[in-house]
Amino acid sequence: MKPVAFAYYRPQSLAEAVRMLREHPGSKPIAGGQSLIPLLNFRMARPEALVDLNRIPGLDEVEVRGQRLRIGGLVRHQQLHEHPLVRQHWPVLAQAAGEVGHWAIRNRGTLGGSLAHADPAAELPAVMVAADAVFELVSADGVRQVPAREFFYGYLMTALQPDEVLAAVELPLASGTSWGFAEVARRPGDFALAGAICECRPDGTGAVTWFAVGGGPERHELVVAADANERAAQWQDLAATLDAQDDYRRHLAAVVAETAYLRSLGRDGQ
């Protein structure tokens, strides 16, 4: 199918963009469009107008600011995957970005778009929750900071208001925590059936953040057992609490958690 008719605006600044979103009820921001345009093509989304963020300068920057890594909302997945600052400070984010869709999708899809869309199977929202990132949401009223852990409500639902733009994210610079990432998909580039990010701190505490299992990223703190059998029981017990659609997903949740854990130790899970 083809999209319904809509008006199209191409603001040259963030201020102009949020003013347009406020002035045109039923309008929607578009960045990479790799989730939104399929919805338009299927007519599941029928916006009155699109406000195109792609030409706004300054939204595609990556920089270290103080003790935080700041990433603009318009940074493309492939840039995120390859960027030296991301690879240096948040290698698990660079790795996760490389698992988003296929090369042609990663060349256009954006970080801000993926977070705003909040697909349950998306990698990047889970990394943001695991990393305790803070999102910068901009509207005509000004800027507000929302922690990633308060941003995702569930399936495709977030704290982002219709007249707001997710302009940037900030991640704390890593501090001795080791990270591992794993996901299972039927074919490379498909939506994940289950995925996990595992964090292990030097004091033995850690956490696992799952995605694609329930309606959004789910993070659980735990002291990960060193014994493999005990650990398997830990993953199974935690996975049993997940709002998964079936037991197979819970089984996969335990599998990816273990793989992510082994990778966080520098051991390659199979």
């Binding site: 199918m1 399929p38 792609n54 492939q78 090369w103 042609a104 060349n107």
Partner: peptide, 27 residues
């Protein structure tokens, strides 16, 4: 497929492969 999955519509945009079914002509 018109949903970015099949890749038949892939073109180069500024030298990089992108889906022409997931991009508006005005963009």
């Amino acid at each position: 497929c018109e949903q970015g999955v099949c890749g038949a519509c892939t073109v180069l945009v500024d030298g990089k492969p992108e889906r022409s079914c997931l991009m508006l002509a005005v963009q």
